[in-house]
Amino acid sequence: MIAMKNTRNTMHYYLMLLPGLCLITLFSIVPMIGVVIAFQRFIPAKGIGGSPWVGWDNFTYMLQLPDSKQIFINTLLIAVLKIIAGIIVPLAFALMLHEIRLAFFKRIVQTVVYLPHFLSWVILSGVIINLLTLDGVINAILSWFGAEPVMFLASNFWFRPLLIISDVWKEFGFSTIIYLAALTAINPVQYEAAVIDGASRTRLLYHVTLPGIRPTIVLLATLSLGNVLNAGFEQVFTLYNPLVYETADIIDTYVYRVGLVDRQYGLATAIGLLKSVIGLVLIVISYRLAAKFANYRIF
């Protein structure tokens, strides 16, 4: 009886879920049938049913490609550095913002840093390219200090840092808001008690603030593990050029060139599938870790 009643009471929730489920089934689950292309020499006119099966050929070929190692390293390096920077910067920023008492100023800063999150990489890349050209702002500033102008976007030394800095700049406002929300959840009584006990500001930070938002930090950190192989296609694609393939070519851009430009559908699907499998493993691990350290559970 209780179960029945529960179902009746929660029916409208399920109904609200329905459109979303339909969309996911239609656009995320059904297309998964396409992964079999990874084991085929796919010919569009013959379709999945008619194309010849080649077993693991696409995968062995992928591992033999001279570029594979480089691309894998690039992807991992760029993504991991982005994750680390993507945790530290917003955290530090949120803590600083938290210390500000002027609510008006706080709000404005919060909104302004959040803005780039809404712009697409196509636009931001245009901005970045213009900032970094030889007669752009950055090089003009460098020249005040007598430095030679640098072609940042053509330099294998600068390209990766640039990707990471620009990515953090675009996205840190979003995480900052989550941290700020977590900070407001800390009970002010704890601060009062600590102050009465004679704690300094740094001590407050270490003994009240940080422990208070620890679950949020752990949660965001572990959940971002699932992104270890997502180095950001749009960003790299709109900024890179053949001169920096060596440091900037990532799995996604490579799949784009192989699959859509050279039309090797089988190989491109194989690379994408491998990436997804590794991604799945990482997501499972991160979920377990999140459950263990932050008591985060979906199921």
Partner: peptide, 23 residues
């Protein structure tokens, strides 16, 4: 060409640009 073109084209454009740019 179907299987190797992407590798070869990449090599070609990288090399040519590097030579022209003097790297």
């Amino acid at each position: 060409m179907l299987t190797k073109a992407s590798v070869l084209d990449k090599l070609e454009s990288e090399t040519f640009l590097r030579i022209i740019l003097g790297t």
